[in-house]
Each structure stands twice: as structure tokens, then as C-alpha cells.
Simulated scan of single mutants.
Amino acid sequence: MSRPSRPVPLPRIAPSPTAEPPYDDERGPSDVPAAPPYVQGTLALALDPGEPEARRPLVWGPPGAAPDERRLRALCQAVAEILAGRRPPSSVFPHMTRRAHAELIRSGKVMNCARPPLVGTPHVSQPDDGVVEMCVLVHCGDRSRVLALRLERRGVQWLCTDFETTP
């Protein structure tokens, strides 16, 4: 004998959550994700310099000590990216004098690179107390260029006062 058949339940349709994140204007103030607490492998540079009085001092170690090579290389990388047109000049404003920053803006894009420029190890010299000069080889695809920077200590901060690159 066969058992009496029970009715089969019908499938239920349930709403699925949206797969896309909400647009910025749909988010509430509590939905805004917090900024990451670290900077991965780059020099932390402010993108909006604000007023000149809002400059934060660039302290690279104990007062009077020369900046370490890793930070010098990161500054060279940032300047090379600006000269290649891949970074805004305002990102290094707190790290340069007004004259050097104006010259950086005036020079514009002088490095033509299909890929982002890559800087090598800086060659650093200290010609005088409170002065650091360095040059670095910038690899721009098939062609390499040289970038030279001069930093001077102003109080406890180091500022880039001049830069040069090959044409």
C-alpha cells in the first residue's frame, strides 16, 4: 500500500540584500568608513595644503639630525611622480619652500612615462651643517633621468629648497 501523499510546500520568495554599496548621497553619517590607520609604503603627504600657516613641520628624527635615507627616497618618489604628472603638486607643499613649490608647479610635466616613475637609491651628501643634497636615478620605462634635491633645516624641520632634473 502506498502512503497518503502530503502536499508539497511551494517555494518561498525572499528578498535578497543589495549587492552594490550605497551611493554617497544615500549613506548616513554613521555609514562613512573610517580612514585606514596606516600608510602603506608611501610618504604620508597631505593632499590639501590649506593655508601657508597650516604647514605641519617635517620632523625627521631628533632635532639637528639628518633625515634618514628611506624618507629622502619617498620625497624623491613624490617629486618624480609630480614631474611625471601622476600626483598633484599640492601633495608636497608642506615639505617645500614657497619658491621651490612655485618652481615645481611652473615646471609642469617634464617626464614622459608610460608607467609610474620608480626612483632608485638616493646618493646623499651634506655639504654644510643643516644642508642635505641628494641625487637619485628615476626610471621612466625605456629612459632614465636624474633628479637632484636640496633640503635645508629650518629650525627642527627640513624643507626642500631647490630641485633639478635632466631635460
Results as ranks from 00 to 15, higher is better:
residue 163 F to V: 14
residue 44 A to R: 15
residue 24 D to R: 15
residue 46 A to S: 12
residue 7 P to V: 13
residue 27 R to P: 04
residue 137 L to H: 13
residue 115 R to G: 01
residue 152 E to A: 11
residue 19 A to W: 06
residue 35 A to V: 09
residue 155 G to W: 00
residue 65 A to V: 10
residue 147 L to R: 01
residue 152 E to L: 07
residue 32 V to M: 13
residue 44 A to D: 13
residue 146 V to Q: 11
residue 44 A to V: 10
residue 162 D to Q: 13
residue 4 P to H: 07
residue 101 H to Y: 08
residue 153 R to I: 01
residue 23 Y to R: 14
residue 32 V to G: 11
residue 133 E to V: 09
residue 165 T to K: 02
residue 70 R to M: 04
residue 143 R to H: 04
residue 141 G to D: 05
residue 95 H to L: 13
residue 38 Y to G: 03
residue 45 L to T: 03
residue 159 L to R: 13
residue 105 I to Q: 09
residue 148 A to L: 03
residue 120 G to C: 03
residue 1 M to Q: 10
residue 78 A to R: 03
residue 36 P to T: 06
residue 106 R to Q: 04
residue 148 A to R: 04
residue 128 D to N: 11
residue 62 P to F: 14
residue 79 V to P: 06
residue 159 L to S: 08
residue 147 L to M: 03
residue 23 Y to A: 15
residue 125 S to N: 07
residue 113 C to V: 10
residue 98 R to K: 11
residue 119 V to M: 13
residue 36 P to Q: 10
residue 8 V to K: 09
residue 78 A to G: 02
residue 114 A to F: 03
residue 72 L to Y: 01
residue 96 M to D: 00
residue 62 P to T: 06
residue 40 Q to R: 14
residue 57 P to V: 04
residue 14 A to G: 10
residue 123 H to W: 15
residue 145 R to L: 07
residue 108 G to N: 09
residue 36 P to D: 06
residue 9 P to C: 06
residue 5 S to P: 08
residue 165 T to S: 01
residue 10 L to N: 05
residue 165 T to G: 00
residue 124 V to T: 12
residue 12 R to H: 11
residue 63 P to S: 07
residue 70 R to T: 06
residue 131 V to K: 13
residue 114 A to D: 09
residue 2 S to R: 15
residue 114 A to L: 05
residue 144 S to D: 11
residue 157 Q to P: 08
residue 114 A to Q: 08
residue 93 F to N: 09
residue 105 I to Y: 05
residue 156 V to Y: 00
residue 45 L to M: 08
residue 41 G to D: 10
residue 148 A to N: 02
residue 77 Q to D: 04
residue 31 D to T: 05
residue 46 A to R: 15
residue 138 V to K: 01
residue 67 P to M: 12
residue 16 S to G: 06
residue 93 F to C: 11
residue 7 P to T: 13
residue 49 P to R: 11
residue 160 C to Q: 05
residue 55 R to G: 02
residue 79 V to D: 03
residue 135 C to K: 15
residue 94 P to T: 04
residue 23 Y to L: 15
residue 163 F to M: 07
residue 123 H to G: 00
residue 47 L to M: 10
residue 8 V to L: 14
residue 103 E to V: 12
residue 65 A to S: 14
residue 63 P to C: 08
residue 22 P to V: 05
residue 32 V to F: 05
residue 140 C to G: 00
residue 51 E to V: 12
residue 92 V to R: 02
residue 147 L to V: 02
residue 158 W to T: 11
residue 45 L to Q: 04
residue 79 V to G: 04
residue 117 P to I: 04
residue 62 P to N: 08
residue 140 C to P: 00
residue 160 C to N: 07
residue 113 C to W: 07
residue 94 P to L: 04
residue 6 R to W: 08
residue 101 H to S: 02
residue 14 A to C: 10
residue 23 Y to F: 11
